[in-house]
Design a protein around this nucleic acid. Structure first.
Lengths: 121, 121
DNA sequence: ATTTATATTCTACATTTGTAGAACAAAGTC
DNA sequence: GACTTTGTTCTACAAATGTAGAATATAAAT
């Protein structure tokens, strides 16, 4: 049950706010702001998809993500690696290291991480 | 003009075949195979989106990708890094190196790539 | 108590996506 | 020349997506 594009954008705001009432979510969206009912519809669909939960506070709801940004992202990335790199994270890693322009500090940070990983064996 | 999910799947076959007639494309799709008109409709939409071109051979068309898998993928990944890592490839790289389970050979390959990159300065 | 701010539900409708039948055309085969 | 294979176009329709008005509820403010 993947989120649609509009739903995913809204999810980003919810991840940032952690918990939010409708009004707060709308406040977080940059202009042109959608109608409140538009956001309400998206939230309802996201709840149906199991991605959002809520607590009742008084008569209204405080919404929160039921899936962390990290794990949602990890799933998306895995899907991409599966289809574009034949399910090989190593091939993807090589491609990424090769193609991306990182500065010296970033490259060194990566080196450190990899060295640590190698020592963990 | 992003491809829809069904279109993207078809695109993968076209990338693999490089050039293909409708029949060849359908042959490449695993069962349950869609109706030929379904594939024809998708191809038409992909042509409209500028993702596929074709040469006329006799009365029928040999289709080919107008966008390489590499560049299409790069765009997708950039979109994800923009939205999930605040447009920071470095942050993404760190996350990825940290979270993915690569074996020793893969880690060393990465090291080599990074070393080469560092020397290129 | 009346107004106001906020939220929710229901309904609606245009667009996009997934899927395919019907009809027609041309090229190769018997 | 009739038949088969392959391809294309047109049309269609259900489901998903993007967007929002109308109606309604309720809590807070005055």
């Amino acid at each position: 049950m993947p989120l649609s594009s509009a739903e995913e954008q809204l999810m980003h705001h919810l991840w940032k706010l952690k918990r939010a009432y409708l009004k707060e979510l709308i406040a977080a969206i940059p202009a042109p702001k959608p109608a409140k009912t538009t956001v309400a519809t998206l939230l309802k669909r996201m709840i149906d998809k199991g991605m959002v939960g809520y607590d009742l506070h008084g008569n209204s709801r405080q919404y929160y993500p039921k899936v962390s940004k990290q794990s949602y992202f990890a799933k998306k990335l895995k899907g991409m690696i599966d289809s574009y790199f034949d399910a090989s994270p190593g091939a993807f890693a090589s491609y990424f290291a090769e193609s991306t322009k990182l500065n010296k500090a970033q490259l060194q940070e990566l080196q450190d991480i990899i060295n640590r990983k190698l020592e963990e064996e």
